[in-house]
Design a binder for these strands. Sequence first.
DNA 1: GCCAACGTTGGC
DNA 2: GCCAACGTTGGC
Length: 169
Amino acid sequence: MTKPTSRPKPIPFVSTGYWLLKSEPESYSIDLFAKEKKTLWTGVRNYQARNFMVDSMKPGDKFIFYHSNAEPSAAVGVGAVVRPNQADPSALDKKSEYYDPKASSDHPIWFCAEVSYEGHLKKPVTLQDLRDKKDLEKMALLQRGQRLSVLPMTKSEFEAVVKMGGGLK
DNA sequence: GCCAACGTTGGC
DNA sequence: GCCAACGTTGGC
C-alpha cells in the first residue's frame, strides 16, 4: 500500500559530474580562487542549490567558474570538487553576511563544498557568447528566470564552454 | 537603477 | 495549505 501524498515527488536528479558555480567577482573572483588554490564554496542560501552540493556533487566533479553581475558576465575558469556536503561555517559566524541564527553545529542547515582551482579559461566566454551558441541552448544557466548559484551541466556543455574559452591557461 | 522572475515568509 | 507581500538575483 502506497502512502497518499499531497506533494509531487521530486524528480530524481542524476548528476553527470559537471557543474557551473556562480560568483560575483566583487565578492569572490577567479583571480582570488587562483591564488588560494582551494576554497570552501560557502554562502549558498537556496535549498535547491544546497541540495545539489549535498546530494549530487561528488569528489572529482568539475565545474565552470562563472562571474555573475560582472562586466561582462562570463565563464572564466574551471575548478574541481574536493569534498562536497560539508557544514557551511559561515552560517555559524555572527560576523558573516551569511550568518543564520537558526543554524547550529548539530543542525547546520546550510552546506558547502570544498573546491580546488584548475585554471583560467584562456579567454572568458561571455553570457552573450553562450547564448549565441546553438549547442548550448538547453544549458541550465541560460534558461529563463534561472537564478541558482549552483547549476548542473552536461559533459558536452562543459566541454563546449572550455573549448569556446580556448582551453585552460 | 530598473525590473522580471523567482524564492521565502507569515497571516489567516 | 493558500497566497499576498516582501526580498533577492542578476541581466540589461
